[in-house]
Nucleic acid binder design. Sequence first.
DNA 1: CGGAAATTTGTGAACGATCACAGTGTATAG
DNA 2: CTATACACTGTGATCGTTCACAAATTTCCG
Lengths: 351, 351
Amino acid sequence: MLKIKPTTINDVAARAGVSYQTVSRVINQHPSVSKNALERVRQAIESLNYQPSNAARHLATQRSKVIGVVSYGTVHYGPAQMLASLEQAVQGSGYSLSNVNVSDLTLEEIAGAIQTLRRQRVDGLILFAPLIGIAHTDLESLCADLPLVITDAEPQSGRAVASIDQFTGGRLAAQHLIGLGHRQIALLSGPLTWYDALLRHQGWLSALQQAGLTPVATLESDWTPASGYRATAELLESGTSFTALLAANDQMALGALRAFHERGLELPRDVSVVGFDDIPEAAFLEPPLTTVRQDFSALAQRSLDQLTACIDQPSAPRHLTMLVPELIVRSSTAAPVMKLEPHSPSLRRKP
Amino acid sequence: MLKIKPTTINDVAARAGVSYQTVSRVINQHPSVSKNALERVRQAIESLNYQPSNAARHLATQRSKVIGVVSYGTVHYGPAQMLASLEQAVQGSGYSLSNVNVSDLTLEEIAGAIQTLRRQRVDGLILFAPLIGIAHTDLESLCADLPLVITDAEPQSGRAVASIDQFTGGRLAAQHLIGLGHRQIALLSGPLTWYDALLRHQGWLSALQQAGLTPVATLESDWTPASGYRATAELLESGTSFTALLAANDQMALGALRAFHERGLELPRDVSVVGFDDIPEAAFLEPPLTTVRQDFSALAQRSLDQLTACIDQPSAPRHLTMLVPELIVRSSTAAPVMKLEPHSPSLRRKP
DNA sequence: CGGAAATTTGTGAACGATCACAGTGTATAG
DNA sequence: CTATACACTGTGATCGTTCACAAATTTCCG
């Protein structure tokens, strides 16, 4: 298990015939270095392929230049996209990312993730785990005095929050259907332990309520196409009558599409469906899916900007950023067939 | 910009009334600590919410306990899945992951990524960037004496490689179509700068050749549904006659599906399509997609096992792991309609 | 050419942990 | 009751870097 020691600042100094401090100055672009020394040190660095040790630097400067991320469900489209966007956004900012993905939304898991990141002495924290059920006081004590930006969580006073306005997104989707004339609308939610899922759900309800409607059915499933399929199949079996379905993400909408197809129902003639996310597949489904697009890279950029602001100036005021998502109308939605027609479009109306 | 200093081993020692060394022993579970001291230190750690500094530890022990990852294209399904699986796999191994996603497959980008990871003094490297065009000698000098596992790259002697056997995957897909009786097969490749794309392509060709066939068309696009759609549309416009299409991933297959739909072609009656990846959506498309499934979590686990073996014992022999992907037959493939029938299934045959 | 100012360079201590070794104190044996 | 082993505890040096300060060198001006 021999391990060859990497070259250090001293090796470079010896090679260049200067003191280690001069090398340090070159690395940190300190102005008081003579042209001569600068050149020699540069060459020594080059020829030894020297890279300064982040750990030693961190120890000496008391800043790790690492931003911690606590994520959840990165196998799903939204979180995966968010993570990739964050990675993109830190490029060139001088920071690097350290991500811990929690497999469960328990307080223990979250606490464990934060502790892992504390051991790394991260300079700040971006939380994009839906924190329903985690008391703010717990979070407070876990993060202590760490600069923190929360994503996908309820706005809390005194905390920097950057979110996509899921509530408005939900309203947008529902209003679209209502505007088309739908009055019998079923809801296919994500797991309501996710803050996003809850907010989209509440957004739907808000719009329905405003139009004097109540959902004809409320289903909850787990974001996957399979669960969306099952839930929709059950709904159809139950004989509930509806003309439109609001799904909390595109994958579940896809499962629903499949359930409709299998029963010979056509979109948008027999049912309208609105998804959420605008996954790359959405435009190419049969039919192309009307959905709500979220701008993850903008969210990532904002989160990062806010966090770095907090790090540089802890006294700075905490902002609350809300990005409004965008409704993308495609072909999975249309006006419902007139109620007066003899062959009513309502599905399997109970006898 | 005041920064409250995190608690150190000395704070704990003072609190517990012992020396810092005793605290260190408790942290590292050294046996020679009296029950009394152990208990007091534990309480001090608890009440101060102490977390040892990884950086200081790293400096003293000369091991960072970090594994570096160089990835490419993590917005796409495969790489994203691989990354999530790796994250899953390191949980509890004592290591943590540091990922750098390169935006370009140039030598400079790769070199930059590796340097970033060298500054972190990673204990080992997992490369899952398709390294076509990067000379082995370059790689050799970049990684010097770092334990290294390569994924998605050509087998190199002396290097540990863990891959999914894309070539065989491609063969499987092609053989399936050939077995069904297809003889006019078009190919829809990914960008051939990706090693995976190239290998799948070669696998297809190999199976076709073995059956005495040549592809009726060869398209190359960029993994996205949109590009798959465009390529397929162009193919249809060109009037080329074919009964089946091999796509290098499911998303491009989806784009193709859409192009067929729009022209009134039905699957699998008029055309058969095989994808690659088995994305969660695949089973719910219209029609459910026949595809080739890759086991990313197995790949991640293997890569990690190999790497840790290399780290613990650099002299250990390098293995070459090949995971065979699995053909998932669904409803997008069927035997072609008989050629003898009056209304031939071949598409837009040139006059 | 002398001396002050400015520029450049070097020295010692610190960061927070571990390692190697040298002390304690207590029990066990002769 | 002394000698020896053993369990436990503490001290100094170290890892690779930066910081604060001091020393050495150069530049400038009268």
